[in-house]
Structure formats: C-alpha cells, structure tokens
C-alpha cells in the first residue's frame, strides 16, 4: 500500500487530501499516474505533463522514481512560503 498526499491547490483538483493505493511490490510514476487518472483525470494529466513537483518519503523525486510498497508519495504545487 502506498499513501498519496495532495497539498494546497492540488487538493481541489484531486478532490481529496489523501489516498491509499494497493500495489504488489513497486510501480513507476507513469503507472501511478495511470491509477490516479482513473479517479482524477485532471490530476493524472498534471503528473504526466510535469506540472507538479513530486516527493517520495519527504524527498524530492521525479518521473523516473520507482515507488515501493509502503512509500509516501506527495504531489506538491509551486511553493509560496516566506511572506
């Protein structure tokens, strides 16, 4: 099982804050975006078009990162902290 988190504006696009997805062992980011597309086509498009940043287990990742069972994947819109 992997945990998928959506933050800020992406929560509205995905229409959820968090999701849990069953995986056998490991999957590619493309496979994950295909799974996400089934429930949220727009979110899947955002991931495929690299419009969002991705982290895996709180470390920045990219479209080549392999996701393993137990990982926490987060989709992150552009940051705007500071002031």
């Amino acid at each position: 099982m992997i945990t998928v988190k959506y933050f800020a504006s992406l929560r509205t696009i995905a229409e959820m804050e968090e999701d849990r997805i069953e995986v056998e062992n490991s999957i590619s980011m493309d496979q994950l975006s295909d799974i996400i597309s089934k429930t949220s086509p727009k979110m899947g498009e955002f991931i495929r078009d690299k419009k969002v940043m991705i982290s895996v287990n709180q470390e920045m990742a990219d479209s080549d990162t392999i996701i393993h069972d137990g990982d926490e994947v987060a989709f992150l819109p552009p940051f705007s902290g500071g002031s």
């Binding site: 940051f79 705007s80 902290g81 500071g82």
Partner: peptide, 27 residues
C-alpha cells in the same frame, strides 16, 4: 536563507480578497 526557503520548502500561501480565495503560485 530566505530565498532558499521560498525555493525548496513545501509551504503554501492562500490569499483571501474580495474576489475570493486563491493559492499563490509564485512569490
């Protein structure tokens, strides 16, 4: 440090104006 904070730290700002709420995408 403040420039780096804005660049790499996963923090997001939402502004409320008379037109509604909007997530800021660039600062």
């Amino acid at each position: 440090a403040i420039a780096e904070l804005k660049r790499v730290t996963p923090i997001w700002k939402r502004e409320t104006t008379s037109k509604g709420e909007v997530w800021v995408q660039d600062t």
